Computed example of a mutant assay.
Amino acid sequence: MAEILDIVDEQGRPTGQTVPRAVAHAEGIRHRTSHVWILRRHAGRVEVLLQMRCQAKDSFPGCYDISSAGHIPAGCDFVESALRELREELGVTLPADALQECGVRHFTFEDVFHGRLFKDNQVSKVFCLWLDKNAEDFTVQKEEIDYVRWFGLEEAIEAVKNNTIPNCIYLEELEMVAAATR
């Protein structure tokens, strides 16, 4: 069954029209996503949980990414989708008030994955979530994620800035999350 997304305006408000996810990415149609960055304080520093995207992903296979993220199905909202993705991808069930909103990002990009042009045009709400849990205690969704790993937040920022780990992380977003920890 095709995943159906709301087409949204520049502020991320649904226009009343929908589109299959594959069409949104083939044509660069604006849609919404929720991004949740999981944080903890460990050994005297702030750490961020990154997921390793599995090789079957339609974009950025084998790259480190946001702790949990996903497209927002038509008719759903940012928080509802963020909580659903946490449950599905990492086996984490929490109330909505556990999420701390960090801001909204708008971005577009194009690249080729698996021999096909991929156009992304997103309005993303960014959240952080404080959760002290060992990486091996998360129940990862194997269709999406190979594994998760904790990084020092500053180490992750430097790794993304210097491109020393394979990643599809926007530095601006990671810095937005870092600002929320201060």
Rank of each mutant, 00 (worst) to 15 (best):
A135E: 06
T33R: 15
R21V: 12
G103H: 05
K125D: 05
T15F: 01
I7R: 02
Y170K: 15
L171T: 02
E47M: 03
R40F: 02
C168M: 11
T15N: 05
K161H: 09
G62P: 00
V160K: 03
R116L: 10
R149Y: 10
G75T: 05
W150R: 04
E158V: 09
L86K: 08
G152K: 01
I72D: 00
M52H: 10
L174T: 06
D146S: 13
A82G: 06
S81D: 09
I169N: 02
D77Q: 10
M176K: 00
R13W: 15
I7S: 06
C128M: 07
F127Y: 10
H25P: 09
D137Q: 07
V23F: 08
H25A: 15
M52G: 02
D9N: 11
V36Y: 00
R182P: 04
M1N: 12
D97L: 07
S59E: 15
V112D: 08
V160S: 06
R87P: 00
V48L: 08
E158H: 08
A74M: 00
I165T: 01
T93D: 10
S68V: 14
M176R: 01
V177F: 09
G12D: 09
A98G: 03
V92T: 02
P14V: 08
K142I: 13
V104P: 00
G44Y: 03
Q17M: 06
M52K: 15
F78H: 01
K57I: 13
T15I: 08
T33L: 15
E3P: 08
Q11M: 12
L86I: 03
A74Y: 01
H114C: 06
G62F: 03
M1Y: 11
C54H: 14
Q51N: 07
E154W: 03
F60S: 08
E27Y: 10
V19N: 04
R30V: 05
L117R: 14
T15L: 07
L90G: 04
G62M: 00
K119F: 09
C63G: 04
V148S: 06
T139R: 11
R30T: 00
E143W: 13
I66M: 06
L131N: 02
S59T: 13
N167L: 01
A2M: 05
V36L: 07
D132A: 08
G91S: 07
M52T: 11
T108N: 08
